[in-house]
């Protein structure tokens, strides 16, 4: 039996420390496996060595506190959406988790997998977590590192030897929304994503955060639009107009499914959609 076929190349630790010990030897971290198992479709060799992290209870934890929500990296999209359904501020994240891919994929694909797969540009959770000012914890044998989403997304391609363990989302007096544009009604990856949050305020838009996903290779904040809207009165047309004048902040990626120009061209419509959603959420509050 070759080494690649020996059992030790596939390990199933039950603790984070065990997982960190198991890394190395060409073993990839495998959570929901939905990305790695598709390697042959991408023309890559099928995975032969892995650390399966689905049996680590700590990674499955979800805690909803007064000030923050903590999600283990192994939480699936389905579990995430179910657990946060009662947290009004995180409606955008619930939307992202409950619309991504399709139901059986959502049942296994994890938060950590979605955030760590740098080659997957169309993930729904990253832009939403960017907008929510989330922070991630990355554990290595030398200790843990705490990063904000922007830092993490910039670094993730080069991180190795460690494990994303949890994501923390601050709570507060805000609302969030998520708009995604697949080419069909559902079931394909969105060609563009806009995530946003802002504070509840009687008259003016405050602490506006807008993040854009799938348009470029890595999601990022739409800082120009955030600045343009910050402190302004809520006016849907003005918001969409601002978005329209600022789409040149992004260079859309060309893909088999859509050219770059299309991804940026649809951004104002998605911005209008999220802000419409936000305003409806504010109108609903007790």
């Amino acid at each position: 039996m070759t080494e690649a076929n020996s059992g030790s190349d596939v390990l199933r630790p039950i603790t984070i420390a065990g997982a960190l010990d198991a890394l190395g030897g060409g073993r990839q971290i495998m959570a929901g496996a939905t990305w790695l198992m598709r390697a042959p479709v991408r023309g890559e060799a099928p995975p032969k060595a892995a650390v399966l992290i689905g049996s680590i209870p700590e990674l499955q934890q979800i805690s909803i506190g007064q000030d923050q929500v903590t999600l283990g990296a192994g939480v699936t999209h389905t579990k995430l959406a179910e657990a946060l359904a009662g947290v009004p501020a995180l409606k955008g994240l619930v939307t992202a988790a409950s619309r991504a891919a399709n139901p059986p994929i959502r049942a296994v694909a994890t938060l950590g997998g979605n955030l760590c797969t740098a080659a997957f540009a169309a993930g729904d959770l990253s832009p939403q977590l960017l907008a929510l000012d989330a922070r991630v914890t990355y554990a290595t044998k030398d200790g843990t590192q705490d990063m904000d989403m922007s830092q993490f997304l910039a670094a993730r391609g080069n991180l190795s030897g460690g494990l994303l363990t949890r994501v923390r989302i601050p709570l507060g007096n805000f609302r969030s929304a998520h708009a995604r544009l697949p080419l069909r009604k559902a079931g394909d990856y969105p060609v563009a994503i806009v995530s946003a949050r802002m504070d509840q305020n009687e008259s003016l838009m405050r602490r506006v955060r807008i993040a854009v996903g799938s348009v470029e290779a890595t999601p990022r904040r739409w800082s120009g639009l955030e600045a343009a809207l910050e402190g302004q009165p809520y006016d849907l047309k003005a918001i969409a107009d601002s978005a329209g004048s600022l789409t040149n902040e992004f260079t859309g990626r060309d893909g088999v499914e859509a050219d770059g120009w299309y991804r940026t061209k649809v951004l104002p419509a998605l911005v209008r959609q999220v802000f419409e959603d936000l305003s409806m959420q504010f109108a609903e509050r007790p």
Binding site: V41, L183, R184, K185, A186, G187, D188, Y189, V256, E257
Partner: peptide, 24 residues
Amino acid sequence: VTIDAKGRIAQDSFETYRIPLAQD
């Protein structure tokens, strides 16, 4: 279906070749 510069059909999967789903 598009033909790429190498003369291949660019859509090689159910991901990239979109046939209607129930909601469509």
